[in-house]
Design a protein around this nucleic acid. Sequence first.
DNA 1: GGGCTGCGCTAACCTATGTTAAGGTGAAAG
DNA 2: CTTTCACCTTAACATAGGTTAGCGCAGCCC
Lengths: 243, 243
Amino acid sequence: MAPNFLSRKLRNFMHLDKIDLALLDSVISKTRTVAAHVDLISEGEKPSDVHLVLQGFACRYKILQDGRRQIMAYLVPGDICDLHVFLLDHMDHSLGTLSTCEIVDLPRTVVLELLDRPNIARGLLLSTMVDEGTLREWLVNIGQREAEPRVAHLLCELLARLRSVGLVSDQKYTLPLTQVELADTMGMTPVHMNRVLQSLRRKALISLESNQLTVLNSKRLESEAGWNPNYLHLRKVAAAAAE
Amino acid sequence: MAPNFLSRKLRNFMHLDKIDLALLDSVISKTRTVAAHVDLISEGEKPSDVHLVLQGFACRYKILQDGRRQIMAYLVPGDICDLHVFLLDHMDHSLGTLSTCEIVDLPRTVVLELLDRPNIARGLLLSTMVDEGTLREWLVNIGQREAEPRVAHLLCELLARLRSVGLVSDQKYTLPLTQVELADTMGMTPVHMNRVLQSLRRKALISLESNQLTVLNSKRLESEAGWNPNYLHLRKVAAAAAE
DNA sequence: GGGCTGCGCTAACCTATGTTAAGGTGAAAG
DNA sequence: CTTTCACCTTAACATAGGTTAGCGCAGCCC
């Protein structure tokens, strides 16, 4: 059975006991596979389930009148979205897959069941707050940093986030995104995104081919990015033994 | 006594009964005045109280190593920040005043008291979600829009938000910010901020003098901005009678 | 096998925005 | 009354990043 990325993630924040872990395992049993570039829910719709990503990359995004798209968040394995979404009666943005994904739809009742377990509840709330912090950091990133440090920052963040759920080995992770999608994330054009990636490669900070991203020199990449991981609030539990 | 901006705001989302209103009134009795440009809490500190703004403008912001500042949110009268902040053990950003402010510090116990009233709790949760939606919209704004529509968008948002708490009359509101602060909000330089404001004035879309902003032509300002207020989720209760 | 199509890459050119510098005004301070 | 200081304003110049266009390659369909 696939590792439970949700419990892996929550254990970055909280200790979970056997019962918690069993509940989390049961919750992810009904997976569905969603193709790339498919909406899980679209702007304007009434939210129904909470979505949990177990594999692949999904995102939040908005499309403007003129067709420009801004990707506002990546959802990677272990990420759960919109814990409290039931309160709203229409989505003000869309949620869609970027790559092929394994998704779990959590109906309201199941969410409430999870929130009944104190440590799971705290973990989920904390990870919601981390999502918000991440959003704020993205705003800073786009508002203040020039293109190259901006991209470097994103790559550092993904390294940290994916590592926290065990998806990094050897400073390498899968980045199943096209340059157009990266550009729409960073608020720049695909042409410029390409220029930046070339430059990062030329400086031997990263390598990226066929969706495999390797951080070749994390020290320098981080300093280029002005990287400070405090907003991920990951220091709580140092060790996270594999399942 | 000053109007209770918190209950005004919550009544945009939920119906509140007499007991709710009385509780909200009692909660805002211990106000303190904070001078402009003072931190309510700084990055790295352990959060203690939840802060409520009753008058003036405050903001969330971060400062980068090189001294650049990004303002990530405005807190205007009625805004409450970080309902769940007690969960975190250090702030990943700062909270500070922009103008002179009236602030209420809500200790944990008072917050819990508020959350005990179901309609207040739902209202607070909803307004937290609106804050998040606003943050996402700011990301889109900075990521995708050019300077002039970007500023126009901010001014439209403030018109809507301040109107929802009764602080707009005659398409006019108080904007107690310098052009430097506006620039730090919009991810641009003060010089360019000035150019944009001049241009909006020349087009007779706004007037702005001594911190009074008037929207002269909201139709055209909104179309310039690509304005869509759906993310404020304000349509719930149409009427909001004054206290 | 030939033609699409999506994606990465590059070049030449253009423009929105940043940079630097300096003058003007009004309010506060001495 | 004079000085100072914060803020607004404008101008001249510099550049990061946008725009447009085109090539090459790999995978896929017929």
